[in-house]
Design a protein around this nucleic acid. Sequence first.
RNA 1: GGAGUCGGCCAGACAGUCGCGCCGCGCAAGCGGGGAGGAAAGUCCGGGCUCCACAGGGCAAGGUGCCAGGUAAUUCCUGGAGGACGCGAGUCCAUGGCUAGUGCCACAGAAAAUAUACCGCCUGCUGCGCUUGCGAGCGCGCAGGUAAGGGUGAAAUGGUGCGGUAAGAGCGCACCGCGCGCCUGGUAACAGGCGUGGCAGGGUAAACCCCACCUGGAGCAAGACCAAAUAGGGGAACGAUCGUGCGGCCCGUACGGUUCCCGGGUAGGUUGCUUGAGGCCUGCGGUGACGCAGCGCCCAGAUGAAUGACUGUCCACGACAGAACCCGGCUUACCGGCCGACUCCCUCC
Length: 148
Amino acid sequence: MAAVLSMPAVPRGAHVCPCDPIDLRRGTQHFPVRARLTRPAEFQRVFKHCQYRLSNRWITLLAIPNDVQFPRLGLAISRKVARTAVARNRVKRVSRESFRLRQSELGALDVVILGRNGVASQSLRTLGSAMDKLWTQLIATCAGSSSN
RNA sequence: GGAGUCGGCCAGACAGUCGCGCCGCGCAAGCGGGGAGGAAAGUCCGGGCUCCACAGGGCAAGGUGCCAGGUAAUUCCUGGAGGACGCGAGUCCAUGGCUAGUGCCACAGAAAAUAUACCGCCUGCUGCGCUUGCGAGCGCGCAGGUAAGGGUGAAAUGGUGCGGUAAGAGCGCACCGCGCGCCUGGUAACAGGCGUGGCAGGGUAAACCCCACCUGGAGCAAGACCAAAUAGGGGAACGAUCGUGCGGCCCGUACGGUUCCCGGGUAGGUUGCUUGAGGCCUGCGGUGACGCAGCGCCCAGAUGAAUGACUGUCCACGACAGAACCCGGCUUACCGGCCGACUCCCUCC
């Protein structure tokens, strides 16, 4: 914990609130199978009835509200944007890790992450911060639409 | 010390924090264990396994191609034979048959295959011309002989030497090469020897083909089980030889039609799914690939698909790359580094 606090260079580390009790962190940073989209039908629902669509240079993010009480993540990294299996795995892992750390701030949303051209050649740190910004945008957009 | 050949191995390490999927224990919270590769890749071969029909007959098609062995099997591996390269350790070779047949061979060249006479060489002429010392010589023409020499070509009826001849020629002889026969050694490929035949005649078989041997098809989305919504089908018996299917065709064979009986199929889930031609060590047999025996290890099993992220320390600053039913090979990609055996050269003792 002291190491985390002594790292002011990490700008998005603010979400790891040092005053959070251990129990809360345990509850919100797990990423079991039930938090993933697994069936083709679930993916189709997100693609067809997408309500929020955000993107930057390397990633597109689609989201719709769901019926369960927690956010769920689906990954769609095509062979076209990441030629080798190793590259695809890298992008997926970075996406999952990013989702895992921010999922407590999201509402009941089904989210699909799409890889765009050039995503495979970016460093882990670049992709991580790019996703972090998208999560922040998504949270703000949801908050805006739910208040209306 | 330098240059090189062959074989094998490793593929950042350690610690902490937060995660992921599997197994075990536990009511639970949680705890413990184990979690990608040498190529997991390309899918190029060979098997196991599953279903189609217990894998059947003929044709066709495809594959393999020196010999022997290893193996579940192979186009793989090991040992050997022959050829090529290298001073050497060693490396490379689809390495059966073009004296079964057919096809193809640009350019050049007279001729590219039942051979052939362009130049040259030689002989004859009761052909012509010239010279003449009247013997003949030279040139041209005609009729023949000749594959020695020239020239062309990747390749021209085996090579070298001697004899022989008008000139020549396996025409004869010796040696080498080749074919055939026998003998010896070797399981064999093959090697050596003896005899014999004047020689049987270019390349190409990853050209058709011939010879010998081998091959049924599809693949874990194989296949098996449980089963919503919906929707009409399934099983048994009999019959037709028309249609459809079973590897491309024929044979052969299954289904469709009628009657009787009642449960059955997609989404989804479970299973197949990891204990296996498995691995470690030791001993024995074998030149070796490998085999046998003992010891007693468990070493991913996911299914939108886990094996990761962050921080710190160290170093030689980390390449190619991610299991998807499982093995055995081959091929391709690859940052660096380590070990062993051997060869050649130089220096010192």
